[in-house]
Every structure is written in C-alpha cells, then in structure tokens.
Design a protein around this nucleic acid. Structure first.
Length: 275
DNA sequence: ATGCCTTATTTCATAAGA
C-alpha cells in the first residue's frame, strides 16, 4: 500500500499536475494540503474518475486539506477536538477593547482525518507562525498542543495511525539548507521542535524519506532565487507514524521530479510504501 | 533593507507563504 502527502499550493492551479502525478505514482492514500478552495469547490469528480474516494476540508483563499483513498475512507473528521481558532493580532486587540462579546470564529481548515485501509490517517497543515514574536507563532504552538491531546485520545483505539502533512517545522538543523540563515526565524525554534518531540513522545516515529538526488530529503524549496536548482530546501513535510505502521514500511522517498517543470507546487510529495 | 515567485481575491494591489 502506498501513502503520500503533498502540499499542492492550490488544488485548482495544480489539478493537471496532480492528476498526472496520481496516474504515475499510483498512491492508495493521499493527504493534500493548501488546497486553497472551499469544501464544496474541491474537484472531487476529476479525482473520483481516477478511482479515489475523496474528502475535503476547505475554507477558500487560504489553507484547506483533503484526503484521497482507494482503500476505503471512513469516519471522516474535519478538524480535531479542541482545535484552536486564530484571531489576527489587530482583531485580538479589538476584542479586548471594543467588543462587548468576544469575536468567535471557526477553526481554520488545517486538519482532516479518516480511516483508510485500516489506518487512521490525518492530513495536516500546521500554522506557519510568521515570526517568533507574532500572535501567529503562539497560535502555532497552541495548535500543536491541541493536536497532541486529540491524537492521544485516538491512539488507544487506533494502534495503526499516521499523522502527516506540512508541519511547518524542520525537525533538525540538517533539515534546512543552511541553519545560519534560519537563526531567529520560525520553523527551527526550540519550542517548535519540542512540539514535534511531544508528538513523538506519544509513540509516533518520524518516517524519514530518501532523497531522489543529493544528500538532503528536502520537501520544500522556495519559488524565488532559483532555490530548487540550488537545493536550498527544507524538510517540513513529515510522516509521523505509530510503531505498528513503521513496522510495515518498505520504503520512503521524496518525489522531487514533481517539483520540476512547468507550474509545480513549491513542495514535493513524500511517498511511503507499506507492506 | 528588501525583493526575488506564486496563489486567490474585497484584483491592475495586497496578503500570505516559510
């Protein structure tokens, strides 16, 4: 069974590349992130034509996640229990001073879970964090803490579980092209890395893929400055699996071919094969 | 000091991404 996770940076803009890649790689379960469309406008028909059941959790311009499966798709969860919402910094201030009642808003579309082929699967798009000083960074850490609690509650009933997607954290300094460049930036700070360690402490393991070229299994390269050609990348798309799933892993790789050519996402798919 | 590229949208400019 083949599992893949891919931040497509707009499923609409990427649809031709996505359909082409699915036909070639033939994954059984696919976790998508940054679909950048609504649940209703998700291109389900085109994907169902390839034999997939689909479930999306989208909100429009930003974020959005989805699951594709041809080994069953049951018990779909859009978001997770306790998932925090984000109110921008200006709005947060407004809330304190101007509003009688707090502004309530729904959580962003950053998580979708389902049971596929006997495995509990989560497709995740973690908040970026922007800068370590920002409210968005605090939100990012809250989001990870809340996800950890939600996951803890599921592990007793789902020994085979995979949480994968764009975690927006590079687990180690080896997972960025130049650690010196990232000093003072998000994605590498100790609290963010601790959030990953806290997930691993639940029994999850980091399934590190093999790079198809070069020494680093990066999964993201900035569109700017020829970053991909120079392999100035980051490994931030992660597959965290419980031990019973890890025991089934026969291979894992980053499909950097999907980052080449015309109209690519800035992320490449991470593919994991299971016996 | 900042953008460099790409996306969708309250579009010919902006916010966000990481």
């Amino acid at each position: 069974m083949r599992l893949a996770t891919w931040n497509v940076n707009s499923v609409k803009a990427r649809l031709p590349r996505l359909l082409e890649w699915l036909a070639e790689a033939e994954p059984d379960i696919v976790c998508l992130q940054e679909i950048k469309t609504t649940t209703v406008l998700f291109p389900a028909d085109e994907l169902e034509d390839l034999g997939y059941e689909v479930a999306a959790n989208g909100e429009g311009r930003w974020n959005g996640v989805a699951l594709l499966s041809r080994v069953g798709l049951e018990d779909v969860s859009r978001g997770f229990p306790g998932q925090p919402s984000y109110a921008g910094e200006a709005e947060a201030a407004e809330e304190l001073t101007l509003l009688d009642e707090p502004l309530t808003r729904s959580p962003e579309a950053r998580a979708i879970g389902a049971v596929c082929g006997g495995i509990r699967i989560w497709s995740l798009y973690a908040p970026n964090g922007r800068t370590p000083e920002s409210a968005h960074y605090a939100y990012k850490l809250e989001w990870f803490a809340a996800f950890r609690e939600a996951l803890k509650a599921e592990l007793s009933t789902h020994p085979q579980l995979v949480a994968c997607g764009d975690f927006n954290v590079a687990p180690t300094d080896a997972d960025v092209w130049d650690p010196a460049v990232f000093v003072g930036s998000t994605h590498v700070t100790p609290p963010e890395r601790q959030a990953l360690a806290d997930l691993r402490a639940l029994g999850l393991r980091d399934v590190v893929p093999t790079p198809m070229k070069g020494p680093h299994p990066f999964s993201y390269w900035d569109y700017r400055a020829g970053a991909f050609a120079k392999d100035m990348g980051m490994r931030i798309d992660l597959v965290y699996a419980t031990q019973p799933v890890v025991d089934r892993v026969t291979g894992a790789y980053v499909d950097r071919e999907a980052r080449k050519g015309k109209g690519p996402s800035d992320h490449a798919p991470v593919v994991v094969d299971l016996s």
